[in-house]
Simulated assay, not measured.
Amino acid sequence: MDKMRSLIFFMVMSSFDTLEIKDNLTATEGGSITLPAPVVKLGFLLYGGEVLAQLKNKDIDFYEKSFRNRLLWNSSTGLLTLTDLQKNDSGIYGIQSKKGNVFTVSYKLSVYECVHQPSVKASAVSADSCTLVCLVEKGDETTLLWYRGEERVNQSSSDLSLSLTLHKQDFSSIFKCVAANPAEEKSVSINAAVLCGQNNTEEKGYDHGRVGLILISALSILTIASFITWMFVMKKCRKGDSQSQGR
């Protein structure tokens, strides 16, 4: 059996010696990747100079046990999928189809940490300007970007924070901070008017107006009540005077 595998290894590897990489693939830890080249009838999967598996008769013969529960072969489409990826799964993968559509191809896979969710806080807030600060935990090749709508307005390739200074005319816009690496991205949308306190200012102004309205209403009611009380007292006094004169 070992001699047979050695022969298979030699025959398969000889065709990969001068093979160029067809494409670069990216994925995240814990995720999965489907290799684009289909093996429908008979073929091999290689990784880092080792034969991982032989594909034959809709079944997989594993040469490397660590991939036994992580390599799936869809015998209908012929596509291979690697699951539960780890960073040490990065490397060169080769696929060789020996029957039907005969080909030999290789791919470079890079597995990255998952991107952390960014967060945003406001600083240096005034009536005319505001600074937004986007923060993210450190990760592989993480880049921070600021967008106003669909327009990119700022970018950092290495820092874990990225500031964006807004002026009063920008407060009505929606901004988005994006944390990204070559495999994925995550973002958070910001209403500048809310974060920079404009809504709070308007709300306070509204409260002052409402308080003023309440005070005016209360004074009006008090004035009317006082007038009614005065009229009642005057009427009572006139009635008393009339009764005194009658006697």
Rank of each mutant, 00 (worst) to 15 (best):
Ala127Met: 14
Ser106Gln: 15
Ser75Arg: 09
Gly94Phe: 01
Leu82Gln: 06
Val115Leu: 04
Met11Lys: 13
Ile8Gln: 12
Phe9Ile: 06
Met13Gln: 02
Arg238Val: 11
Ala183Cys: 07
Met4Pro: 00
Cys237Thr: 09
Ala53Ser: 04
Lys176Ser: 12
Leu215Pro: 00
Ile224Met: 08
Ile21Val: 14
Phe9Ser: 09
Val188Pro: 02
Ser187Glu: 13
Met4His: 11
Ser106Phe: 03
Gly246Ala: 12
Cys134Ile: 01
Gln96Ile: 09
Val102Ser: 10
Ser75Gln: 09
Glu203Gly: 05
Lys108Leu: 14
Asp84Met: 09
Phe227Leu: 09
Ile190Thr: 03
Ser76Thr: 14
His208Trp: 08
Phe10Thr: 15
Ser156His: 07
Ile228Val: 12
Ser123Arg: 15
Asn200Ser: 13
Lys58Asn: 14
Asp159Ala: 12
Asp61Gly: 11
Leu45Val: 15
Glu50Trp: 08
Ala225Pro: 00
Leu25Met: 10
Met234Gly: 08
Tyr206Lys: 15
Leu166Met: 04
Thr83Phe: 08
Gly212Trp: 09
Ser110Tyr: 01
Trp146Lys: 07
Asn154Asp: 13
Lys65Cys: 01
Ala225Asn: 07
Leu46Lys: 10
Leu55Asn: 07
Asp140Met: 05
Gln117Leu: 11
Gly100Gln: 02
Gln155Glu: 15
Ile21Ala: 15
Phe171Glu: 09
Gln54Tyr: 04
Asp170Gln: 02
Val133Ser: 05
Met13Cys: 00
Leu46Met: 10
Asp61Gln: 12
Ala124Met: 10
Arg70Thr: 04
Ser75Lys: 11
Val115Cys: 02
Asp2Lys: 11
Gln243Asn: 14
Asp61Lys: 08
Leu45Arg: 10
Tyr47Ile: 04
Cys177Glu: 04
Asn88Ala: 05
Ser129His: 07
Met13Asp: 08
Leu162Trp: 00
Phe9Lys: 15
Tyr107Leu: 04
Leu85Met: 03
Tyr206Leu: 14
Trp230Thr: 10
Thr131Trp: 05
Glu137Leu: 09
Ile33Asp: 03
Gly209Asp: 15
Ala127Gly: 02
Lys56Arg: 06
Thr131Gly: 02
Leu162Ser: 03
Asn101Lys: 11
Ser157Phe: 15
Asn200Thr: 11
Ser189Pro: 00
Arg5Leu: 07
Ile224Asp: 02
Leu46Ala: 12
Asp89Cys: 01
Lys235Thr: 02
Val39Gly: 05
Val40Gly: 01
Ile190Arg: 12
Asn74Pro: 03
Ser172Leu: 06
Val211Ile: 10
Gly49Asn: 13
Gly197Glu: 06
Asn200Pro: 00
Leu145Gly: 06
Leu160Met: 08
Arg5Pro: 00
Phe44Leu: 06
Thr28Glu: 14
Ser226Met: 02
Ser161Gly: 08
Leu109Cys: 03
Gly205Asp: 10
Leu79Pro: 07
Glu29Ser: 06
Lys41Arg: 10
Lys99Tyr: 01
Val51Glu: 04
Phe67Thr: 03
Ala193Gly: 02
Ser242Asn: 11
Ser110Gln: 03
Ala218Tyr: 01
Ile174Cys: 06
Phe175Gly: 12
Val51His: 03
Phe232Tyr: 12
Ile92Met: 08
Ala192Tyr: 00
Leu7Ser: 07
Ala193Pro: 00
Ser161Trp: 07
Phe103Trp: 03
Phe67Glu: 04
